[in-house]
Design a protein around this nucleic acid. Sequence first.
DNA 1: TTTCTTCATCGTTCATCGGCGATAAACGAT
DNA 2: ATCGTTTATCGCCGATGAACGATGAAGAAA
Lengths: 116, 116
Amino acid sequence: MKKADRAAVLDVPALSTEGDDAMARRLAALAHPARLRILRRLACADACCCKDVVATTGLAQSTVSQHLKVLVEAGFVAYEPDAQRSRYSLDRRALAMVRQDVDLLLAGCSAGSTCS
Amino acid sequence: MKKADRAAVLDVPALSTEGDDAMARRLAALAHPARLRILRRLACADACCCKDVVATTGLAQSTVSQHLKVLVEAGFVAYEPDAQRSRYSLDRRALAMVRQDVDLLLAGCSAGSTCS
DNA sequence: TTTCTTCATCGTTCATCGGCGATAAACGAT
DNA sequence: ATCGTTTATCGCCGATGAACGATGAAGAAA
């Protein structure tokens, strides 16, 4: 099969669902043990600064800052600069939405689902 | 902070949860739009061969084979060779377990959760 | 046997991730 | 003004991921 033909097939809406990219991005943001730990750490307080998270993860500060950035960009964590500190706080609403993501996936994979 | 000190911190059970690695691996297996498409494609029939999936994804056969391998290794898809074909089938039970993963994560991030 | 189909695997290329140290900026404290 | 703290970002590196084409094996079909 040539690439052009594959592209043609790709354009068929079929199961595209279109939201797959967004869901995949959200899942990827969660698909790292350090980030899961960080999320739970953030759940302990209204807000944490980067240093607090560093202390609980055992990772370098720069590494933690990167993970936090990933979580912020995925929407799971809110960021607000506070003097020389940074206030990171968990967005439980956004986090709860991944449950809907999974539910939607499960629905799309339910026994009665069709490919149309 | 020196690396040895960070390692010491890391050994503190704290929020380790230990299952984070496994959950992260499962989520990583789902964190790709092509694999989400493939899962839904597999949901349409009792079993699909690789070729069928290729037709719906627009990707090269070798690429699809790789994605299927990832899904099989993550446990979401069952594999059984069938003559020159391969029978891939969705494991809905395994897929449903990610819902529990998410629920557990949400519980660990609930408002009342403590860092101990 | 020979041919065709289907598939997994290999090797390659390119991009991204994950981790680190170093550095500079911002700010409070002295 | 200077020092210490906290943070984000940069550059670097090794490892992994994603995609492809090519190849060979296994089996159906001719």
